[in-house]
């Protein structure tokens, strides 16, 4: 082989991946001035130590009201995930290229992009303006926010689904809906459930924040304790409860998603009774 043919020209390294990496490095270099902060000579370490000491010990006298706030947060997350799942199922049919015509796909995707562009906090402000400061505002806000994401995930699941079983059932005389119910849906169901579960976890975290703008949930408690100067130990109890809830949800969700993955890959021999 000719030795010249082994030489790779230097500019060939600059493919799209290389250019974006270089761009990112330049962006980081240009961002260094942001590390200067306020420019004042502050004792960061002592500030942090002082703040951390104020958080301990957590004040358990407010445990009851905190648990009520967390329960409200879970209610907001549950109902918004449920409503968003229902809306997303319909919207995802319109957004899936394998199911709907191109013009319907384009319009639906544009709508979903707009919904996703608006952050959950802004949805919460809009909902509070609409229905006032209560948990309903939180449900409305997170329903819209979650729909933008779930409909995208569902439509991707529809597009990547294996349609062979559905076609086989059509060949055996099943109508379009029967073939969907027994040929396609059993394969999609675990994936869709996995996405819903992830969204629920996400919504519990989001529902903790939107309370800051009055959309119900534990966020309102966080705001109250953060704004009063001597309530940092109450603030820490709320954080502790949230940490426990989020960790439990995370572990449970991961376990369920693993069983779903195993089932889809044929590793699990999970027995389902009464089908």
């Amino acid at each position: 082989m000719n030795s010249k043919s082994k030489i790779i020209p230097w500019h060939s390294r600059f493919d799209l991946q290389g250019i974006t990496f270089l761009f990112f490095l330049l962006l980081c270099l240009g961002s260094f001035p942001a590390l200067e902060g306020s420019g004042r000579d502050l004792d960061y370490w002592n500030n942090l130590k002082g703040f951390a000491l104020k958080l301990f010990p957590p004040d358990f006298s407010i445990l009851r009201s905190t648990l009520q706030g967390i329960w409200e947060t879970i209610q907001i997350a549950s109902l918004s995930t449920l409503l968003a799942s229902v809306f997303s199922l319909f919207l995802s049919l319109g957004a899936a290229r394998t199911i709907s015509p191109l013009w319907v796909v384009s319009i639906t995707r544009m709508l979903l992009n707009i919904i996703r562009t608006i952050p959950s906090l802004l949805w919460a402000i809009l909902a509070v303006v609409l229905v006032g400061s209560n948990p309903l505002a939180g449900i409305i806000a997170l329903t819209f926010y979650s729909t933008g994401y779930l409909a995208k995930f569902f439509s991707e699941a529809f597009e990547s689904a294996d349609l062979k079983a559905q076609h086989a059932l059509r060949g055996l005389g099943a109508d379009q809906f029967q073939a969907f119910q027994y040929g396609l849906w059993p394969n999609l169901r675990p994936i869709i459930w996995s996405h819903c579960l992830w969204m629920f976890e996400y919504n519990v975290r989001s529902a903790s924040i939107i309370g800051y703008v009055g959309a119900g949930g534990i966020g309102l408690h966080l705001k109250l304790y953060a704004e009063s100067a001597d309530s940092w130990n109450k603030f820490s109890l709320v954080l502790l409860c949230m940490l426990i809830i989020v960790t439990v949800l995370d572990l449970t969700g991961e376990r369920v998603r693993k069983s779903i993955r195993d089932r889809l890959e044929g590793k699990s021999s999970l027995i389902k009774k009464g089908d």
Binding site: K164, A165, A168, L172, D175, G183, P186, N187, D275
Partner: peptide, 28 residues
């Protein structure tokens, strides 16, 4: 290539053979 619904149980796949004889509502 069999073309079975992998996410369904064996009995559901077997039963789906009779969908052509059933109405939409009853199979739902």
């Amino acid at each position: 290539d069999l073309q079975l619904a992998d996410g369904a149980t064996a009995i559901t796949n077997a039963l789906s053979g009779c969908l052509g004889r059933n109405s939409f509502l009853s199979s739902f």
